[in-house]
Design a protein around this nucleic acid. Structure first.
Lengths: 338, 338
DNA sequence: ACTGCTTCCGAAAACGATTACGGTCGTATG
DNA sequence: CATACGACCGTAATCGTTTTCGGAAGCAGT
């Protein structure tokens, strides 16, 4: 491992000058800087992370917290990978690195986050899978760590967030179905205590009420956020009487299992029951074609990163203003399923 | 942020003693240790990671390197999430944390890895998506960083690896198809330069040869590792003449698109053409049911972590012996597709 | 009383970087 | 010629830990 010491010895100058040259400080001779840069390249010098962040008090890494485990996330496969890609294109311009902080399924997310922020692992955090009441917000706020969340929560510490427009989706979907003549619409409640479930269900209720309709509690279905969960809930839906004539759901993972489950139960999607859901790479080949809502995950990631930067004191040259809170629109892809 | 200094002042003892007490060193009075532990709990003290790892020369984190971007990985992230879960259950027992090192799609993986190891970010690395010739092995070997890879490579620096039994899969699949009367079997070549493509194709050729058959180059299909890629290659397969009577593929992402593409082209999977692939949560609801190979991803992760520990000098109390190289078996789920 | 041994703890030196501060040199200015 | 100043660079302090070393106190044996 070549350290700054070796580099300085090699060039026969002091480590202070080397550091200044590399960090683009003003008072260093142009020629000297050139030599330092060249030698650093040649010897493959990269500043040691621990030393640097101990002194600077910052690490240069942004953490994206997510839970591992097979059936935890309500998001599909390519979802996070695409978001990451967008986040990174922005962060890399500021020499920030993105790492995924992986919280094991058998560890409490709050405790995990507490441990990692106290260790000083990341300068800023991106949260996802926000709960209805999410104590992680208070934790980060208390420690004064810059963060942003992908998802809202009732817990409000003045934090910035970006969230998908689940209300808009509810509105468009319900109106579309009502217009098509549906009077008995059901929904699938997404993963456990995630906040989006409430947002979505509440807006569905409201829009239905505007049309003089109600969301029967009997037609709010619970399902595990997995393909198997979709299959299982399909049978529940098929056997309920009265059976809803349409289903709206926000979870893109469920829908493949749902289709198959309904078919197996003799209920043809798009014919016997309308379905509106979310797009994912897997849903694009369902037949009948799924009517679904989509968005650019990469752009979402870009926005997430840009707004995160705006709350990081060391980087907020670009954006100033009020704390960013963005409702991210989704666009409808008209299929034949509903 | 409460540091060891505050804790020591609070207890009116020296920081040395505090450190020793917390780290379970021998020469500290039992009563003193108790007081320290108690105060640490009360003040919410967590050692600063930078200071600690600067001194110790190790960080206590294991990095799992993966590429981000929508169409890069040939695995879904349900795949990795499950593997992660297994890895973590082992690592957490040793107070090691797992983070995903996310290499952006527009950065060279080798350069990325070089940067992160030089920074001293992680004590050990898990590689995935190994290439036919993967220079990352040499890099890590040169820097003397403990690592293990999920996947083999022609590049051999005596590194440990675990890889799925693609040869075994090829053997079982080909024999099964031949037994069922197929004489013209095609394969889909997985993602670009990944080593598993070669392993799989070579073994397919061998097994076919054992039965007096050959793998026509015309029936080795290339596809992008995505659902859309599967759809696209389906049309290619359908329109080739002569058309293979069976297809074997190792990429679980492709198969949903493949099914749909074939159907759209008027070629019924399982009837007009046999298909054998890999299991994923998405494939379980295809009809006709996919004949596929599966494995426990969580167990794979556990094994990965255990073998990684065995090459980490500070942890190799448990396992000693030769460098671990494991071919991970997969089990066949008999469907009706082939 | 002296020595030897244990047990516990404090002082201080690392680890590798950044940065405040001061010193040296050359040049311009009075 | 003396002074001031700017440009450049070296010295040393600093970040928060861990760990080595040695010292103090207590106790037992002679």
């Amino acid at each position: 491992m070549t350290g700054i010491r070796q580099l300085a010895d090699y060039l026969d100058i002091s480590i202070g000058t080397v550091s200044r040259a590399l960090n683009g400080k003003a008072d260093v001779n142009a020629e000297t800087r050139r030599r330092v840069l060249e030698a650093a390249e040649k010897l493959g010098y990269v500043p040691n992370q621990s030393g640097r962040s101990l002194r600077k008090g910052s690490t240069g890494v942004v953490g994206f917290m997510m839970q591992t485990g097979p059936e935890i996330t309500s998001q599909g496969d390519a979802f996070f990978m695409s978001v990451f890609d967008g986040v990174q294109t922005v962060l890399s311009r500021h020499k920030l690195d993105l790492v995924a902080l992986l919280c094991s399924s058998n560890e409490d997310p709050y405790a995990y986050l507490q441990r990692t922020v106290a260790r000083g692992f990341a300068d800023a955090i991106i949260l996802s899978a926000t709960r209805r009441n999410d104590a992680r917000f208070e934790l980060l706020h208390r420690h004064d760590i810059p963060f942003i969340s992908l998802g809202r929560s009732l817990t409000d510490v003045g934090q910035p967030w970006i969230d998908l427009d689940f209300e808009g989706m509810a509105e468009v979907a319900i109106k579309r179905l009502v217009k098509a003549g549906h009077r008995d619409i059901g929904i699938i409640w997404p993963n456990g205590d995630l906040n989006l479930g409430y947002l979505f269900a509440d807006r569905c209720r409201e829009v239905l009420a505007e049309h003089g309709l109600a969301l029967s509690e009997d037609h709010v279905f619970r399902a595990k956020p997995s393909e198997a969960g979709g299959y299982a809930v399909a049978h529940e839906i098929a056997s309920r009487s009265p059976r809803p004539s349409a289903i709206v759901l926000v979870n893109e993972i469920l829908v493949t299992g749902l289709y198959k489950g309904l078919e197996d139960a003799g209920v043809k999607p798009g014919k016997d029951i309308a379905i509106i859901g979310r797009y994912s790479p897997q849903t694009q080949f369902l037949s009948p074609a799924l009517t679904c809502f989509t968005l650019s995950l990469r752009d979402l990631g870009i926005s997430l990163a840009e707004h995160l930067l705006s709350v990081m004191p060391a980087y907020q040259s670009h954006y100033v203003g009020q704390t960013p809170r963005v409702i991210w629109p989704m666009t409808l892809i008209e299929g034949t399923s509903g």
